[in-house]
Structures are given as structure tokens and as C-alpha cells.
Design a protein around this nucleic acid. Structure first.
Lengths: 146, 146
DNA sequence: TATTGTTATACTCTATAACTATA
DNA sequence: TATAGTTATAGAGTATAACAATA
């Protein structure tokens, strides 16, 4: 933890920002072919998979959207048979949202397809370069969580 | 370049995909506070900065959107004084779209602000970890371009 | 009263289909 | 006829403000 910001750090930030944003855009595009779920919908399903059943408010907080937006997204997912909404037995104001089995399968397939795309590209790298990416992945994850 | 796909490569792909998508989402959110340009608009300006004056069709192709979508985006940018539209002197059907000076300045400021956000987070990392990210950035960029 | 969720309303981004102007 | 761009229309995603139901 250096006490002051160095020029080298600023340079890394700039390069990393561009690289991450562009690769993400590319990955998003890869997803969009032959699929009918938006990134918003997919992200919501992933969050439910990770945390299990959540209330609408919790789900909105995880996805960092306002409750009315999440109400809409959940409505779309419910229409597609990917989530269920049930009233909380102990607090009638709350609604519990959970994945259906169809959603679990769909998430698995989507992940497989996108991982395959990226793994295919990893084959063009040397093993040293793959090692660097392997080390970088958890650091990127921590950056996001701070 | 290994001749076959290893399980380790597939695992790296999965971790990397999640990390990149999530960090990108975070970066996108960072941008949206206190600014009035959408990512679509910013992306369009960046493309014009990179390639110079383009026709609407070319611009739509670079941004991977349909022409009617780009017509709208360009209209918004024109309202904000960030691009100009001029008829092509040799082909009256075509419209040439170019950045204004205000747009060039705005791009520079936006970049600075977002880099600062990421650089601030880099301060929580060790110098070894920063070195890994520095090495990873160009590899990520190559992954996208393949 | 405070909290949870929904409805009403509005704006951006995106698309396809239909149209206009030019080549 | 073919091409470049715009207009018409529609749906998703987002927000804020106002409302209903429950605690």
C-alpha cells in the first residue's frame, strides 16, 4: 500500500480500464448471438444462483438498480418461467424470488458457451501468459468489490 | 500453444470471464454518476476520435448497431454540440460525422476521471499484484482483438 | 409511521419495416 | 434498381414520484 499515487499506477489504470471495457463488450456481443436473455436478465439470474432466494429489495441492491426496475425485470423472468415469486410467510410485504430448474439449466449452458469462446482464444497464448491471467482474475475480482 | 484444450485453461476462462464482466459493470456504473453522456454516446465519440470523420453507415458498423439507432445517437450528440453532420460533397446521400472541439475536451476529462477511480483502487494492492495487472492488460487487449 | 413492493410516467437504447432522396 | 439515411413503431431497461399493503 504505497502512501502516494505513482504515475506508473495511473498508467496501469488507464490500460486496464480500456482492456477490461473492450473485452467485456466483446464477451457481451458473443452472448447475444442465438440467445434471448438480456445481460440484465442474465445478471439477475446469476445473482439468484449465487445467493439463493432473495427479496425484491435485496435483489435490486445486489444488481444496483432501483426497486421499480427490478420489479420489471423479475416480471419478464417470471413470464419466461425462469423465476418464481412467493410471499414471505412471516412478512406479507416481502416477496421471495427464486430460480426455477429451467433457469439453472439455462445458466449452465450459457456459461459453457461463453467459457468456450474465451478458452478458444486462450489457446493462442503461451503458458506464461495464461499463468498471468490466472493470477490476475482474483485481483480483478477484488478490485470490483472494494 | 498447446495442441489440446486443458481443464486448467477452461477454469481460467470461467474465472476471467466473470471477473472482467463484473469489473466492467462497475466501471460503467462509475461513469454514470455526475455525467450526462451514456456509454453509447461515449463509445461513439471514442470511435470518431480514433478513426476521424465517418459516414453514418460506417459509424454504425464500428459500433455494431443498426443505422436507425446510430441516427438517433448522432442526433443526441449533435444537440449537445459534440458532433457535426455535413453532406458528403461527392455523394449527396452520405452524411459525414465529425467531432467538435468540445467533444475532444470532454473525452479527455472523462478518461481522466475514470482512470482516477481505478487508480484509487489499485492503491489497495501490493506492488506484486499491480505488476500482475500491468502484465495482464496487454494480454486482455490481444484476447479481444483475435 | 416506516417499510416493501407496485404502478404511473418519462427518457434512452435498440431493433425492424417503411419511406425519401440520391446514384 | 440499389444505396444512404430517416421516420414510424415497438420493446427493454432505467429512473423518480406517487400509491397500496403490511408491520
Amino acid at each position: 500500500m504505497p502512501p502516494t499515487q505513482t504515475n506508473a499506477d495511473l498508467a496501469v489504470a488507464g490500460e486496464l480500464r480500456l482492456a477490461v471495457m473492450r473485452l467485456a463488450r466483446r464477451l457481451r456481443r458473443e452472448r447475444s448471438s442465438g440467445d434471448d436473455l438480456s445481460l440484465t436478465q442474465l445478471g439477475t439470474l446469476s445473482t439468484l444462483e449465487l445467493h439463493g432466494q432473495l427479496t425484491l429489495k435485496e435483489l435490486a441492491a445486489h444488481e444496483r438498480v432501483q426497486p421499480p426496475s427490478m420489479t420489471k425485470t423479475v416480471a419478464h423472468l417470471e413470464e419466461k418461467g425462469l423465476v418464481t415469486r412467493t410471499a414471505d410467510p412471516t412478512d406479507g410485504r416481502q416477496v421471495l424470488i427464486a430460480l426455477t430448474q429451467a433457469a439453472t439449466l439455462l445458466l449452465k449452458e450459457d456459461r459453457k458457451r461463453r467459457d468456450a469462446w474465451l478458452a478458444q482464444r486462450l489457446r493462442h497464448l503461451s503458458s506464461d501468459e495464461i499463468d498471468i491471467l490466472r493470477a490476475a482474475a482474483p485481483i480483478l475480482e477484488r478490485l470490483r468489490q472494494q
